[in-house]
């Protein structure tokens, strides 16, 4: 299951990562590959509800499991509140790291009702961004939290 739909991927090699399968076989290039070593977090997806680096998961390991990618976060045209907060706070520059950061922030908000600044930093420390300086990413998470508590 990928983003709520049963998918069959053709031509997947034994050595292919989940990231490669999503990008090259299932036409879901929203998840990005920037290091292929689990350092940058750009490839973050949910696997059975757990945030993983899809470059470190074999495609075969996802067989029969549920995957949620950035493409599956919005409800049709309605963006997820975390996505909207990233736009409104100006947390997006080049945007290459954004899918991973959005999912990591979404995961944090799903696990924590009211995370402290330290907990936000801890949760997002595995997602590298080279443009923004992260200040607006912190703003985005705080904005999403504030909107949720309203």
């Amino acid at each position: 299951m990928v983003n709520g739909t049963a998918r069959v991927a053709d031509g997947v090699l034994e050595s292919d990562s989940l990231l490669t399968m999503l990008r090259e076989r299932l036409d879901l290039p929203g998840s990005k590959g920037a290091c292929e070593q689990g350092e940058c977090g750009s490839c973050s997806v949910y696997l059975d509800g757990v945030l993983v680096c899809s470059c470190l998961v074999l495609a075969a390991q996802a067989d029969g499991h549920g995957v949620l990618t950035v493409e599956g976060l919005a409800d049709g045209d309605r963006l997820d509140p975390v996505q909207q907060a990233f736009i409104d706070a100006g947390a997006v520059q080049c945007g290459f790291c954004t899918p991973g950061l959005v999912l990591a922030a979404h995961d944090l908000l799903g696990r924590h009702r009211d995370p402290s600044d330290l907990e936000i930093r801890e949760a997002l420390a595995g997602n590298l961004c080279r443009c923004t300086g992260y200040e607006k990413v912190l703003d985005a998470v705080r904005l999403a939290l504030a909107r949720r508590s309203r």
């Binding site: 990005k32 590959g33 493409e71």
Partner: peptide
């Protein structure tokens, strides 16, 4: 005046196509 970027929705939804995404 503060203005969110025009391509924001495309970028946060994973719909933006970078060179590495061209297939």
């Amino acid at each position: 005046h503060e203005t969110p970027r025009t391509t924001g929705p495309t970028r946060v939804s994973g719909a933006a196509r970078y060179t590495t995404d061209v297939s």
